[in-house]
Design a protein around this nucleic acid. Sequence first.
DNA 1: TAAGATTGATGTTTCAATCTTT
DNA 2: AAAGATTGAAACATCAATCTTA
Lengths: 172, 172
Amino acid sequence: MAKTQPSESVVKAWARLTRAQQLALAAIEAALKKADLPALSWYDALLELERAGERGLRPFELEHEMLLAQYNLSRLIERLSRARYVSRQVCKDDGRGQVLVITPAGKAMRRRMWSVYGPAIQAAIGTRLSEAEIERLTALLGTFLERAKADEARSGVAGRRDYSIHHRNEAT
Amino acid sequence: MAKTQPSESVVKAWARLTRAQQLALAAIEAALKKADLPALSWYDALLELERAGERGLRPFELEHEMLLAQYNLSRLIERLSRARYVSRQVCKDDGRGQVLVITPAGKAMRRRMWSVYGPAIQAAIGTRLSEAEIERLTALLGTFLERAKADEARSGVAGRRDYSIHHRNEAT
DNA sequence: TAAGATTGATGTTTCAATCTTT
DNA sequence: AAAGATTGAAACATCAATCTTA
């Protein structure tokens, strides 16, 4: 481990990355709340489950997609299940686990959330950068994420677990 | 209000912005925890207070810097104060308020935190993007933040309050 | 009435310990 | 023993109501 201090420019990049994300997130969460809708973590879980279709997902798969700690996810699932947006089914292949499947009500809620979430993304990001700027930002962040993924693979999945904070998503 | 759905590219930019920030933040928070140090919100508050010097800061000034809701900050200050990193002094000019001043122990803790925080930033960001990429990313995010600030000014400070989530910071 | 700040009640996140099945 | 998952207790965040001074 190197313990090297970062250059000024790296610190500035980190500060801005965080502030930009924070600003956009706050506006988006506020829009959802104003519309009396659940928070983003519900959206992300519902989206993944909808993509998975009838086969559903195991909690640990969802955990990986969402970068959520296991105990955290366990409680999120409990809430989604109580709200009847997700049904928990027994897993035939593995007695330890369960399979999560989105319900019709869950799909409907995801769509309702998108009708607020989408425009909020547009207002927070889309109106503040040109198409060209968006493309450049996306490309840079893509490079960053790819290298991070490569590092993760290199370190043999060690250092996983223990994330937190909602969110992720790549479309609709 | 427009309610326009965002383009695919804007959604992708948002998704990556969030994931990148999340990934870096998780690694940084993990490094602090591993070193038995407080969370980032403590660092940010201590940094602002150290910059303010002996004059100190009013809670609402700190609130603005940190994008924290008032009640949230109120409790953070309580913890910092209990830990003896910050002292609360009466405000002569305004009987409603107080003035927060960092203590020597607070400064020492900020420095200790930086010795872990700095290298964690470097590991999370600095090793994954070249200097040129960092510069481009910083410039794009700078543009974004400037426009966001302009929008905020235009809307007459309305829509303030109610942020959340730790963090911000521009150096040492 | 509004600004600065706090607080009780409630909900969520986190840690650590636990349970079950592999 | 390790993987998948849950849970009690504690820490923290959030909402709404409150309090004080401007």
